[in-house]
Nucleic acid binder design. Structure first.
Lengths: 328, 328
DNA sequence: ACCCGTAACCTAATCGATTAGGTTCACGGA
DNA sequence: TCCGTGAACCTAATCGATTAGGTTACGGGT
């Protein structure tokens, strides 16, 4: 039994209409009455019901966040989520975490929202096209897979530029056989990394070396798989690893193989995190600025809510600087 | 302009009351009419408005999640959030991420929810008492700080038992001067670790060695701080580190100091994660089962919503097994 | 004195779903 | 035949906030 507008109006001896107008700062009430109503509302600790308001305004004030249910990179999603939540809050919107509808591809049971934010939409995730099919504003962080539909807004990181920055740096530090290690090929991000790397290799006259490993295979398995890859002579002498977790893992395996990270083999991570800064040696990484990325997604969605669907997605770019450290 | 119940009713030639009853499977409609209404609703792709329903039922179907805004342990929060979101979804509830009201201590601007879940409530977080003050069901994952208020439900991990398990294991592997490294003293969890460790030291006739470091201080700083702590003779020879990130960090620093992790110094992490499994050497850790923990919190809250406030918090325990690995 | 404009309020409809409380009608029993 | 009963529907109120569209009453202009 929370305090309703009617309670406040009754206490102030006015109609709900007047109370509403007074509290919302609209014209049509005397300053005197407005002051009194405000005071009474304050004293009664009146909080407008978001439900009543939502019904009338045909806006729920909710934004749905959809992310892959495999958290491949560790701090990244937490940071992104926080960034989104805080930015939305500044606009009086709330963030709802949507369950993965990965297999079902159904938005059944999703709450009513004013728009969606998609983070890292994966190619095989059936929930992604289901969301894009709806007539609501969608901002996608990273390009959705082909055929999934077109978002209203698109927030991108310059993956090509940062990938090149990593490999150019490897090259300038004397690497002759740089390689790339990925743990998945289902996000646009990792596909970008691989494509750019292969192009770069072509330009440099190098043979590309791409290893696809699993986030689940054991260290022993991975060690034997990669032993040849990192063989002392003719092996990979610089590697970009997708994800902060995988970079730490590779660093350990390289030590087991007798390598010195940052010296006999250069290492960089495609995703920066505190872990990269505090690893020994500190690991060179691309800072995707997840928190900032989240706020940009949220702010763009806020702009798009209430507008017509644009003919082409509105694009935003979030810088992703290379943080150079000892490892590579 | 989504399809409303009235649209369906009109198309079926019945009143909204009949349509509502038919679609909700309540008695009072003939099977024939029910079938027809269902079919029409299906064909029109009718989705009940959660707002209209919420207004009438005086339930929003939303649960608020409040977490510390410092993500001290990396994958932990993502996992917990997913667990909560999925469990709630099974009960047709949605999860809203609340912004931190750390400094303001105000729930102003929070959306209307049916209950709250607090994860790791920190001692100095003013949002925690603000939430507990409300007349809504709250489930707290970890005990809230003294004076913050009493939650309706409490989900705990056996921190004492798992801390003891770690140090008993250190002891059985020959450690003589085990120590504890924390990065904060504001969560019940870390306070539990420290208290249990000190008690354990008393029982064992050992001098406790607790180091409080910051998640922000540089490796160089930390290395010089800890050099004496880990001195070859008489230094700490086994350490429990709070958090997966900090454990990896300590592992690196120990290597710099000439130690062999798992041999000259034993290392364990208070929080397990894929990182611990894939580090070289693999790091012994307490598995807090964050995903499961999240579902237990959610399920408990669902039980409590709609009931009277219990005189004492309803308690649930989530097991936290020690995952023994090479490091310690 | 009369008219008109306007500030300051109020009445009532509206958003969508649910539900208490009718109304109708068919059928069974006396 | 008449009444009672209950199934099958319907009407209208309700939840809380907003807002279009009145209704007063007061003041200025002529």
């Amino acid at each position: 039994m929370p305090v309703t507008l009617a309670d406040v109006a009754r206490a102030a001896g006015v109609s709900t209409a007047t109370a509403s107008v007074a509290l919302n700062g609209k014209a049509g009430v005397s300053d005197e009455v407005r002051r009194r109503i405000r005071e009474i509302a304050e004293r009664m600790d009146y909080r407008p019901s978001s439900v009543g308001r939502a019904l009338r305004r045909a806006r729920t004030g909710m934004v749905g966040l959809y992310m892959p249910n495999t958290a491949s990179t560790f701090g990244y999603y937490t940071e992104t989520t926080r960034g989104v939540a805080e930015a939305l809050h500044r606009h009086d919107l709330s963030l709802v975490i949507l369950p993965s509808s990965h297999e079902t591809g159904s938005t059944e049971g999703f709450p009513d929202v004013d728009g969606y934010i998609l983070i890292e939409p994966h190619t095989h995730d059936r929930g992604v096209p289901a969301i894009l099919r709806q007539a609501l504003p969608v901002v996608s962080g990273d390009t959705p897979p082909r055929g999934a539909g077109t978002p209203w807004g698109l927030v991108e990181s310059p993956n090509d530029a940062s990938t090149r920055a990593v490999f150019d740096r490897f090259r300038s530090r004397g690497a002759r056989r740089p390689g790339l290690i990925l743990i998945e090929r289902i996000s646009t991000w990792s596909l970008d990394l691989e494509r750019t790397y292969r192009t770069w290799c072509g330009e440099q006259g190098l043979e590309p070396r791409v290893a696809l490993t699993s986030a689940r295979s054991s260290n022993a398995k991975l060690l034997s798989d990669l032993a040849e890859w990192f063989a002392p002579d003719g092996g990979t002498d610089a590697v970009l690893a997708g994800g902060d977790g995988i970079a730490v893992r590779i660093a350990g395996l390289l030590r087991s193989l007798g390598h010195v990270v940052g010296d006999s083999v250069l290492l960089a991570s495609g995703v920066d995190s505190p872990l990269m800064e505090f690893h020994t040696p500190r690991i060179t990484a691309v800072d995707l600025q997840p928190r900032h990325f989240g706020t940009v997604c949220a702010d763009l969605l806020v702009e798009l809510i209430g507008t017509e669907r644009p003919s082409d997605p509105v694009r935003r770019l979030v810088d992703a600087p290379l943080i150079a450290r000892e490892s590579g």
